[in-house]
Amino acid sequence: MTTGSAPAPQNTRTTAEPGARPAGNRRAGGHPKRKGNSETVAGYAFLAPWLVGLFALTLGPMLFSLYLAFTDYNLFTAPEWSGLANFERMAGDTVFWGSVQITLIYVLVGTPIKLAAALGVAMLLNYKSKGSGFFRSAFYAPSLIGASVSIAIVWRAMFSAEGPVDSGLSFLGINLGGWVGVPALIMPMMILLAVWQFGAPMVIFLAGLKQVPAELYEAASVDGAKAWRKFISVTLPMLSPVIFFNLLLEMIGAFQIFASAYIIGSGSGGPAGATNFYTVYLYTRAFTNNQMGYASAMAWVLLIAVGILAFILFRTSKSWVHYGGDTK
């Protein structure tokens, strides 16, 4: 494999030079022990804002919600400890399992399609620089629309009986007579909506492609590698940290799909429960039925389930994600 071998040190020095002053303190390069100490100090200094945010804004509410998961909290009266009651109820809640099922389908089918679309388009855009600004903007535009009722209106119109999707399909001889009122077609609609808004991972892929040093391609060309070979041996390894990021984050995001489902299903999970995704159901429990205890229990079950998946991903990432900064 011709993975990203470290660039020649001489070159790197030229880039480093503007920032580097010959004079100044020489401590940093000293003994390894002292270096470790200074890194701890520097580490916490750089991390300070994040740490303040974690302890002041994030951790307290998270722990509070963990506590609520074991209570019957209903927003109006003080929470009372209820042990595992919420979790036991969840196990027997058919609506809950229905929401788990459709959410899993959405994640497993939607995420790979969206990522493939984002990567494919990013490669296309990276191929040429002429006019790419325009196309980049065009492809990103759908992701700019906020989650307002406008998107529900547009999306219903696209898949209605007279809409372009159905007209296009009937041109191919498939006639579904509109997707919107067919519960079985809601899932493909939701997935297509997610794929349509592929702008975020696309931009991240683009940024990643910009980081791939051009020499690697040149070297590969000199070796006589064809486009596909270059993609496999240069692009994919160099892009792997970004692919990993997009995969993880899109997966987490898909598990937590809320706004678009809530709007398209008019907040009720309809029609026929087809938009009752995990967090939509959680929200209904929390704010419509005022069962914040139950909702918190649901939230922590999701955290643990997705946490395990994320952990596995991190583990496997060691074998396929190559960081340019890691010494070989």
């Binding site: 009122g181 067919v182 519960p183 907040g267 009720s268 999970g269 309809g270 029609p271 026929a272 429960g273 209904t284 419509t288 039925n289 005022n290």
Partner: peptide, 23 residues
């Protein structure tokens, strides 16, 4: 009753589901 709004909504959603032939 407490939660009537939610029940009203559930009723409506189920009515729609019947109309769609889903249940």
């Amino acid at each position: 009753v407490v939660g009537y709004g939610a029940l009203e909504n559930t009723f409506l959603t189920l009515g729609t589901s019947i109309g769609l032939g889903a249940i």
